[in-house]
Every structure is written in C-alpha cells, then in structure tokens.
C-alpha cells in the first residue's frame, strides 16, 4: 500500500532528512489557470531545509506540465519529483532506457482527474485571454470581459484526459491524494482508426495541413521527456541532415524522423502538444505510433521498466508482409 501524505509535509520531510536534495513540483503561474514548475533545493544549514518556497507548492487541474523532463537537468542529485499518472509512464520509460537511476529518484504520486486545456476553454467561453479564473472542485469559473462563465471541468480538460486509463501513477513512493476513478478499458485510438479508414489522399491532405503549419521551432522536442539526445539529428550540420526552410518537406522530414525515434517510447503524455505554438496535431501521429506498437507487436511504452526496448529488439517471426 502506497503511503498517503500531504504534498507540503512530504516535501519538507524529504528535503530535511536527505531523502532528496532537489524537489520538482508545481507552483501557480503568472496567468490565470497556468502552473509553472517549482524547483526547491535543500539548504540544510538553516532551520528550515525546504525553505519558505515550499508553501508555494500546488497540485490541481492547472498542473499540466510533465516535470519528468526536468530530471535530465539533475543527473547527479537525489531528486524528488511530483508525477501525474501520464508523467509516471514517462518516468518508467526513462528508467527503462537507463536515463534515470531509480535509486536516486523519489516519486511523489499525484492522482489526477485531468488537466485544463486552455484552447478547449477558449473555444467554450469564446475568450482566449481570461482576466481571471478560479478553479473549483469540478468546475472552472472564468472571467472574460467582466463577465463570469462557468465551465464543467470535464469539458475543459485535454481530449486525452477524458478517457484516460492512467490517472493514478503507475510508479510512486507516496501518494498525495486518494486514487481517482479511471477508465478500465484499453485505449481505443479512435482518431487513428478514423483516419486509417479514410482514403490515402485524405490522409495526405491531413498530414500536409499539419506540416504546413509547423515552423520548426522544436518546442515539441524541448518539452518531450523522451527527447534527451545530446545532439539531435535536426541540429547536425556536418553534413546538414534536416533542412530548415519554410518548405513543408522540411517539416515532414523532421516530424517523420522524430516519430521514428519516438516509436515504442512515446507514452502519450501530451507535453509536445501543449508546447506547440502552432497547434499542430502531434497527438494523432504519436497515437498512431502507440497503436502500431501495441497492435503489431503487443508493446506498450512506459508500462514496464524491465521490458526490452521496442526498436532495437527483434523477433525472428516479426511481420514481413510489407516487403516486395
């Protein structure tokens, strides 16, 4: 049974007793309904090793960012990190790839009923820059042009959060709340199936439409916990591999190759989707990878830290029907 505790209490305790040197959590952001990462460094010289900033720690439906990505910055320290269900899969993926040492990490599990999607909220309320907002138990009050609008939380969350089957962390040393109800059904990948049923021409138009909008800012890569290469193929200059012109072919090259690298590794946490300034539908293509790995090879990313990697492993009886 995982221990139940309070976020601020456990933060203070672990930073004081040396279980962690650094704690990564969330604090309220500067805009309404936004949260920003909060990094606490233990200072054991004073009376309060966790410092006064620990009172800024929050966890609620604003805390969308996947903090696991920040673990790459603290390779030599003992780190405590707050993870949601989806983030825990990213963490398992990193342990599987030996990028994170499980003995060096303490995990604070945060059961999550879904995080707020600002674009969904803007669509519902018709206002993309609310002047104020308050989060209640299952609804959001948004102030737009001095007018208050109430939106049920279930409608304001990301599409991936609605039927989520990993709301409770798969890996946690303690939980800061009681586990929440989650879908027991396996992921259906409805959007992927729908596009697969369409004609090749329609699939191409969708892909071209998405790629035309990509400005190659590489924010998806920056926020992705699985994108930890020291030198990315997109940055190689001798010789230059990936083009950086406005031609959609360059965006296609970048995204198709990034997808190849993410196969069997993307856990669908949605960090790239949230990071994209152009609203490119990256979720659809990431979901395709997950559906492919699951359907064709029975492989699921971020489920088992001991499992062999998907690409890099093979079976003599792997499908051969795609060859001439």
């Amino acid at each position: 049974m995982t221990e139940r505790t309070d976020l601020k209490t456990i933060a203070a305790e672990w930073l004081a007793d040396g279980k962690a040197d650094v704690l990564i959590g969330w604090q309220a952001g500067t805009l309404p309904l936004a949260a920003a990462p909060l990094i606490l460094h233990a200072d054991r010289s004073g009376a309060d090793p966790a410092g006064g900033n620990k009172d800024k720690l929050v966890f609620d439906a604003r805390c969308a960012m996947n903090l696991v990505n920040l673990l790459h910055k603290f390779k030599d320290k003992k780190v405590a990190v707050v993870v949601k269900g989806c983030d825990s899969r990213s963490l398992i993926g990193l342990i599987q790839e030996k990028q994170v040492d499980r003995d060096r990490i303490v995990v604070i599990g945060a059961p999550c009923a879904g995080v707020i999607d600002p674009s969904a909220l803007a669509r519902i309320t018709g206002c993309d820059a609310p002047s104020g907002a308050t989060l209640e138990k299952d609804q959001v009050r948004v102030v737009c042009d001095r007018e208050e609008k109430v939106v049920p939380l279930s409608e304001a969350v990301y599409p991936g959060c609605r039927g989520c089957s990993v709301r409770n962390p798969l890996l946690a040393d303690c939980l800061i709340a009681d586990p929440v109800e989650q879908s027991a059904a396996p992921e259906a990948f409805g959007d992927v199936e729908a596009l697969r049923q369409m004609s090749r021409d329609e699939r191409w138009r969708k892909f071209l439409h998405e790629m035309k909008r990509c400005i190659l800012c590489h924010a998806c890569r920056a926020m992705c916990p699985a994108c930890y290469c020291r030198e990315c193929f997109a940055d190689i200059t001798r010789p230059r591999l990936a083009g950086r012109t406005a031609d959609p072919a360059d965006a296609m090259f970048f995204h198709l190759l990034r997808l190849m690298h993410l196969a069997g590794r993307c856990t669908g946490c949605g960090a790239c989707v949230r990071a994209c300034p152009m609203g490119v539908d990256l979720r659809l293509y990431n979901d395709f990878l997950r559906a492919f790995a699951k359907k064709e090879y029975g492989f699921e990313a971020g489920a088992d830290a001991q499992a062999p990697p998907f690409i890099g492993e093979f079976d003599q009886n792997d499908p051969n029907d795609f060859t001439m």
């Binding site: 699939r203 191409w204 198709l256 792997d318």
Partner: peptide
C-alpha cells in the same frame, strides 16, 4: 536485417498513415 525489418515495418506503416503514395 532483423533489426532493419522492425524499423522498416514501422517506416512503411508510418508513411502509409501520413498518406505518402504507396
């Protein structure tokens, strides 16, 4: 080639999903 096969199976299906001509 076993490693290649799994990789190219993925690439073939990915290009198909993106609508690149068969």
């Amino acid at each position: 080639n076993y490693h290649a096969r799994r990789k190219f199976h993925l690439l073939a299906r990915l290009l198909d999903f993106a609508g690149i001509e068969e």
